[in-house]
């Protein structure tokens, strides 16, 4: 028995875009499935914003195709299916929460009863029912971010594009915003968000796409990316009671592994199996006469994957 692969909510094929001599996108391709939460990462200038603008219909790609639920991307129709939340607080600060939501609901084509229903939902969703008639300009950054987000989903889009939705807000507000996004995801909304908070991307997304210099350099779940890039070995750091006089060798043979750098108080190495190999390593260090002050075990994270794939050089 075979199962047909479901049509992606969003499919991007070989998208290219240049600004003069600068190639912002050099053939980007990936899919976004229904209800999927995709973190779209990349260093500054990688082309993330250009891709988001192409998807939001704010700029035209030079080459390539975009499909929405299998249908070719047409700007006006796409606008009904896509919600866009820019990085800036793109609201009318001198209007109330309710007035902002009503305005953007109307811009998205909602009328009368539908608008009323969505407005009630948005106020409840953002937790701002009590502040519905307060001016947005007087809100904290976190509250403004929530209204900013709600204005982009008033029309109930199938796909939500978010450009750094949690920049500049406190951990509590970030938590609340991701809870709101999870609620959307459960109802089938596909979410594509850009962020520089790698821990958030790792924890709050189903899939990660890393873009660098206009190209997709990684696409998969965090486990897949780790395995394909830095590997699954754990980084172990042993802090010892005095500087190392010479490297510690695991055996007497010429090919035996050695650990540590003379003069340093720390021994760092990678091991495959923590439960079996870490006790052996500790025992080896003790046998050489060193006391162990602290032990740290670090699992490979998205942070390591990201730097491994995109390098350590500054991009701006």
């Amino acid at each position: 028995m075979t199962y047909a692969r479901p049509t992606p909510a969003l499919a991007i094929h070989d998208l290219r875009k240049s600004y003069g001599d600068l190639q912002a996108l050099k053939g980007v391709s990936f899919d976004l499935h229904k209800g999927e939460r995709l973190a779209f990462l990349g260093p500054n200038g990688a082309g993330k914003t250009t891709l988001i603008r192409c998807l939001a219909g704010l700029t035209n790609a030079d080459h390539g195709e975009i499909f929405l639920a299998g249908q070719p991307f047409k700007s006006l129709e796409a606008r009904k299916q896509i919600g866009f939340v820019p990085q800036e607080i793109a609201l009318y600060a001198d209007l109330t929460t309710r007035q902002n939501l009503q305005a953007f609901g109307r811009f998205h084509g909602l009328r009368r009863r539908e608008l009323r229903d969505r407005l009630a939902w948005a106020l409840q969703w953002t937790g701002l029912e009590e502040r519905a008639d307060d001016l947005v300009g007087a809100f904290s950054g976190g509250m403004q971010r929530r209204v900013n987000l709600a204005c982009g989903v008033m029309h109930g889009p199938r796909i939500l594009l978010l450009d750094e939705p949690t920049v500049g807000v406190d951990p509590q507000s970030r938590q609340r915003i991701f809870k709101m996004l999870d609620e959307l995801s459960v109802t089938g909304t596909s979410i594509l968000l850009t962020t520089h908070h790698l821990d958030e991307a790792e924890e709050r997304s189903d899939r990660i796409v890393i873009l660098d210099q206009g190209k997709v350099v990684a696409d998969g779940s965090i486990d897949e990316l780790v395995e394909k890039s830095v590997g699954t070995q754990r980084l172990v750091r042993l802090r010892i009671d005095r500087p190392l006089s010479s490297p510690i060798r695991a055996g007497v043979s010429e090919g035996a592994a050695s650990f540590g750098t003379p003069g340093e108080n720390e021994i760092a190495t990678r091991i495959d199996d923590v439960s079996n190999h870490l006790p052996d390593l500790i025992e080896l260090v003790r046998r050489r006469g060193y006391g162990i002050a602290d032990v740290q075990v670090e699992a490979p994270s998205l942070h390591h994957v990201f730097l491994h794939l995109t390098g350590y050089e500054l991009r701006d």
Partner: peptide, 13 residues
């Protein structure tokens, strides 16, 4: 400047 125009143009307007 504050990207409200981008947001407006991403709607049906």
């Amino acid at each position: 400047e504050n990207q409200t125009l981008d947001r407006l143009l991403s709607t049906q307007m």
